[in-house]
């Protein structure tokens, strides 16, 4: 159960364009054990999707550059592997559930073809059995198998997301990266999809990286949490570490304060003032300092070190010894 099978160390990713360099991910590290679910939380632009795409090595070819770090998956550094090896990993060992089901499916291929493709590519089933297996997977995610010869435009949004999930599950991968799998869905469908993913994860014992900006989803599905801000993990720990009282990064506190609470008498939510810093021109020192309520002199000068306590890590000067 506690076998470390994905470990990311000091990963840094930059998008290089003619005009500017966007530092999307700045030296992040985390690890994941078999059967665990890690939640990566953060605002838009925090570098969550970039992290996910780096693991799959699907960053946009011409601009996305991995500058530093290592991605160790089953004792192999994926960053040192050739494209042939990576193709074998993709879809079979690691698969990804994409953010937007409306655009993630090919409009001119039937859903059956799209779900069966990974099976075909990785020789997971004999040609004549693929059809049957596709039917099974579709039933598993709650789509009638009879609909396999239909095209994506004939499905509703929630159904499309199920198809996207079915594609990711087809080869029963060891790791599923779910990139905001429910963002494009309305709340009732969201709950269904999350239940479904939880159920599948338990039956297949897969590990999962759940990328989201919704702390509710994290509470419902994750074992570990990493909170990202401006390309860094500013706080991480077990689900309990993050959701219980105690020392927290001011940004984490801000995130929790901006969620409406049922039994709260306050009439206004407390948003975090300001915006995410421009990734082409990150502030010196702590990247959160322009928005931080506890900003000190030191925060503007020095990058904070990582403070560790048990399973919890916080990157903040408040907890310097």
């Amino acid at each position: 159960m506690s076998e470390k099978f994905l470990e990311i160390k000091d990963l840094a990713v930059t998008y290089e364009t003619d005009e500017e360099n966007v530092n999307a991910v700045n030296s992040i590290s985390f690890s994941l054990n078999k059967g665990e679910t890690l939640g990566i939380v953060g605002e838009t632009g925090a570098g969550k999707t970039t992290t996910a795409l780096s693991i799959m090595q699907l960053l946009p070819k011409e601009v996305g550059k991995i500058k530093n770090g290592s991605i160790i998956f089953n004792d192999e550094n994926l960053l040192e592997k050739n494209s042939h090896y990576l193709r074998q990993i993709r879809g079979e060992k690691i698969s990804m559930i994409f953010q937007d089901p409306m655009t993630s499916l090919n409009p001119v291929l039937t859903v059956g073809e799209q779900i069966g493709e990974a099976l075909e590519l990785h020789n997971k089933a004999k040609k004549e059995n693929i059809n049957q297996r596709v039917g099974e997977i579709m039933e598993l995610v709650g789509i009638p198998a009879a609909r396999k010869s239909e095209y994506p435009h004939q499905f509703s949004g929630g159904m499309k997301q199920r198809v996207v999930i079915a594609i990711a599950l087809a080869c029963e991968p060891e790791l599923i990266i779910a990139d905001e799998p429910t963002t494009a869905l309305d709340v009732t469908i969201q709950a269904q999809v999350l239940d479904l993913m939880d159920e599948l994860k338990n039956t297949l014992n897969t590990s999962m990286i759940m990328i989201t900006h919704d702390l509710g989803i994290v509470a419902q599905t994750c074992d570990k949490v990493a909170i990202m801000y401006a390309g860094e993990i500013i706080e991480s720990g077990t689900l309990e570490d993050i959701f219980s009282e105690g020392n927290h990064h001011p940004y984490t506190v801000g995130l929790f304060n901006s969620i409406p609470k049922l039994n709260d008498k306050k009439t206004r939510l407390e948003p975090i003032d300001g915006l995410m810093p421009d990734p082409t021109n990150l502030p010196k020192g702590c990247k959160f300092h322009p928005r931080c309520l506890h900003c000190m002199k030191k925060c503007k000068m020095e990058e904070p070190k990582v403070y560790k306590k048990g399973t919890k890590t916080i990157r903040c000067h408040l907890y310097d010894n």
Binding site: F98, S104, P107, Q114
Partner: peptide, 11 residues
């Protein structure tokens, strides 16, 4: 996006 999906399958 669907081309990226295809790549993610290992095509």
């Amino acid at each position: 996006d669907y081309i990226r999906t295809a790549r993610a399958k290992g095509a």
